[in-house]
């Protein structure tokens, strides 16, 4: 899993790239898009369960980033944390406005999944997880996605969600319990019957 834009070592790199962009460096824009967009899109996909809406949200969030680039204060927040926060908020707004549309099977699967059976199983697992995530309360869903799928640490999630680390731990733990309970009845379909 790529975490280029979200690991500690890259903290200053995103801010440096953003400063270069604000100074007119077009290549910096391309690099920033490549570093930030895939992770942001994956987050929005999991939050919304819809590719088109997820793309709209990420496009809107990045547009806000470009607009504020000349006034960016590196001491305020990490670029990636700020972007995640905007994506989470935009997704929450969008979910409140309308319920996500049901997705076709395999809507977000990579093409190189090994073998047809394995691919079908993989598709079923992702679809089941997405369905269970959609059923969680907003804050639990956000905490679980940010930690268990996006791979952020609890302090990073606390920054994104503007909560204490303890609150994040509690939300993520409750979310995971709810997912395990909700998905327990699908063991056979998900290939966990023998576990």
């Amino acid at each position: 899993m790529t975490r280029m834009a979200f690991d500690g070592a890259s903290r200053d790199e995103d801010a440096r790239l953003l400063a270069r962009y604000a100074d007119g460096d077009r290549e910096a824009a391309r690099v920033l898009v490549a570093r930030l967009a895939p992770q942001a899109l994956n987050l929005a996909r999991r939050m919304l369960g819809n590719q088109a809406d997820a793309e709209d949200v990420v496009q809107e969030a990045l547009l806000r980033l470009w607009k504020m680039a000349p006034d960016w204060d590196p001491g305020r927040a990490r670029v990636s944390t700020w972007l995640y926060r905007v994506v989470v908020n935009l997704c929450t707004d969008r979910r409140r406005r309308h319920q996500p549309v049901a997705l076709p099977d395999g809507w977000d699967m990579a093409d190189d999944a090994p073998g047809a059976a394995a691919k079908m199983l993989q598709t079923a697992r992702v679809a089941a997880l997405q369905g269970a995530l959609d059923g969680l309360p907003d804050r639990q869903r956000q905490a679980v996605i940010l930690r268990d799928i996006q791979g952020l640490t609890n302090p990073q999630i606390a920054d994104v969600m503007e909560l204490s680390v303890e609150a994040v731990e509690s939300l993520a733990a409750r979310g995971r319990r709810a997912l395990k309970s909700a998905l327990g009845g699908m063991r056979d379909e998900l290939g966990f019957a023998d576990d």
């Binding site: 699967m109 993989q122 992702v126 089941a128 997880l129 997405q130 268990d148 799928i149 997912l179 998900l190």
Partner: peptide, 9 residues
């Protein structure tokens, strides 16, 4: 399941 979700396109 989380691992499968991380392997998105």
């Amino acid at each position: 399941l989380f691992s499968a979700a991380r392997g998105s396109a």
